[in-house]
Design a protein around this nucleic acid. Sequence first.
DNA 1: AAACTATATCACTATACAGTTATATGCAAA
DNA 2: TTTGCATATAACTGTATAGTGATATAGTTT
Lengths: 104, 104
Amino acid sequence: MSDAQVDEAARLFGILSDASRLKLLRALMAQSLTVSELMEATGLKQGNVSKHLGVLLSARFVAREQEGNFARYSLADPKLYELCDLMCLRIAADAHQRNKALTR
Amino acid sequence: MSDAQVDEAARLFGILSDASRLKLLRALMAQSLTVSELMEATGLKQGNVSKHLGVLLSARFVAREQEGNFARYSLADPKLYELCDLMCLRIAADAHQRNKALTR
DNA sequence: AAACTATATCACTATACAGTTATATGCAAA
DNA sequence: TTTGCATATAACTGTATAGTGATATAGTTT
């Protein structure tokens, strides 16, 4: 694996390292949504949502489709599900570990 | 999924979002190594290696074992392999896409 | 065209953190 | 105990970026 590939992996992990972006992705896992709908779903402000979507778009984690005056975003990468699932499993396993340690 | 869990997922992704830390993990995938060996394997300076290992340790991605004067680190989370594999696949798929787009 | 709406972008501030150097801690050999 | 080595930690600097408010861009309606 080349240095450039490691850098790229780090960059992609970095894009997933923000709670606001994860919330946007989570909302999009259920259905594709417009910016306004994403504002509502996440509680983030408009400029912030657009900025984060731009980041996600640049990494091709999401796709953008113009619908008249609206911009509809959808998940573009099936690997996202697996990546997030894995991390969630990891968190659950960790919680379980900690729990066992406490009650032992 | 709670807000706290989303935050935790973001934090863990963040820990993987640094090229130096990924290089350390990659080196540890082959075998457990001491700090000095990791310096050699990655080209990073001592203080930097220790700091990154501390971060990885705090997330339990690695484990630490004292061996006399040395500290031996090893991978502690089997999910790391899958996470990194997935991201690498994603990068490869992306490269393939771009390649196809160019030669089309 | 003018007014309105949805989205994108800009400028700014505050915060987090990677890398570096220097120093501290702790184990080990003499 | 003194010396030396391996590792950890502290202090500092520079850089990146999240959030915000204001503004710009584009499409839509009247």
